[in-house]
Simulated assay, not measured.
Amino acid sequence: MKIFARIRFYYSALVISVVVSIMILLLGLFPERKGSILHFWNKVMLFLLGAGVEVAGRPDEKAQLYLINHQGIVDIITLEALLDKNLRWVAKKELFEVPWFGKLLSGAEMIGIDREDRRGLIKLMKDVKESLEVMHRPVAIFPEGTRSKDQKLLPFKEGAKFIAEKFGLRVQPVVILGSKSVVNEHEKTSTGGDLKVIFLPSIDVANAPKDWYERLHRQMQETIESEYEAHAISR
């Protein structure tokens, strides 16, 4: 079983590498069609990975900021496949330096943030403002900042809260379950299975209570626990 999971992982890695290469090429040839290129080819990638997706709740067409729990690259693939929105993801600067994958992030004009630079939050604010007002692209952030190893959400970083309150954004929390079964990058395994994506109700931060961010964290954690207890679906 473990050998099969390892073989499946390397197949998945090959699929991701090939499709990423295609996207890099197409983004270079047709930069004005970023959104449609990313949406279509991430759908293709999800299909080739053999992962079905169950959706609960509704994506908010007016959402400006998506906050998502994080387990791996499949989280990004899944949301890009579901939403034809030309999302602008916030990623740590180091990922832009990764061979090949960094070219995709740069070509798609994603947002890089340097966690070691005190001016990182100022740059993030400028990039978010440009995304919404100039590029008209919603922003997607993993508020945990890194990947959790179990069912418990890590504490949310304050950056997402700050920019949401600074610009009075409409925020939609999203819970993605099952991504580590599809591709577990740490253990280099893939056991297959389907994903579940839960779009929770949006929050109008401009009119939200002061503890909206803490409530959001609690709601996402309760959703994760409820799905695990009811359907044995892990994050």
Rank of each mutant, 00 (worst) to 15 (best):
Y11W: 10
V98T: 15
S131E: 03
V98Q: 04
L67K: 01
Y66T: 02
R215A: 01
V134M: 07
I16P: 10
G72S: 09
G193L: 11
R137V: 02
R118Q: 04
Q71E: 00
R170H: 09
V205G: 11
L132E: 06
I77K: 03
G145V: 08
K196C: 01
V134W: 01
V197L: 01
A108E: 00
Q151F: 11
D127L: 07
F142H: 08
G35Y: 01
E144D: 06
R118D: 09
F9C: 10
I3Y: 15
R8Q: 06
G52H: 07
V174C: 05
E185M: 08
F156N: 00
I3K: 13
A160W: 06
P173G: 01
T78W: 11
E61N: 06
F4Q: 15
K93G: 11
G28I: 10
F162P: 07
E165I: 00
L124W: 05
L154C: 02
I233A: 02
P143Y: 09
A13V: 15
L104P: 15
D150C: 04
M45P: 02
M135A: 14
T189L: 01
L95M: 10
R215E: 00
D150I: 07
Y66N: 02
S131K: 07
L154V: 07
A81W: 10
R235T: 15
S106N: 15
I233V: 09
Q221S: 05
K2A: 15
F199P: 05
V205S: 06
R115D: 05
R147G: 06
L121R: 01
D114F: 09
L79T: 02
I111R: 13
L124G: 03
I233N: 10
A164W: 10
T223I: 09
W41Q: 02
F101W: 13
Y66M: 04
F142K: 02
T191N: 11
A164T: 08
K92Q: 13
V183R: 07
S17A: 06
E229G: 03
L132H: 05
E130M: 04
F101D: 12
K166C: 08
I73F: 12
I233D: 00
A140D: 00
R147Y: 04
K43Y: 14
L82I: 07
N207K: 05
M110G: 12
F162R: 10
I37D: 02
K126P: 00
G193W: 11
A91W: 14
S148M: 00
R137I: 03
R88M: 11
D211G: 03
L67R: 04
S12N: 03
L200C: 05
S17N: 01
I141N: 07
M23C: 08
F9N: 00
L27E: 10
E229I: 08
I24G: 14
K152W: 00
G120F: 07
A160T: 00
E144A: 09
A206F: 13
A230L: 14
K85P: 00
G193F: 05
K43D: 10
L121D: 05
V183M: 03
D84F: 14
K188H: 13
F156E: 02
S179K: 09
N207P: 11
E109G: 13
H186M: 15
S181V: 14
I113V: 12
F40Q: 01
I176K: 04
R119S: 04
S179E: 09
V98H: 07
L132S: 04
H70L: 11
A5C: 08
V128W: 06
R218S: 14
Q64N: 08
S17P: 05
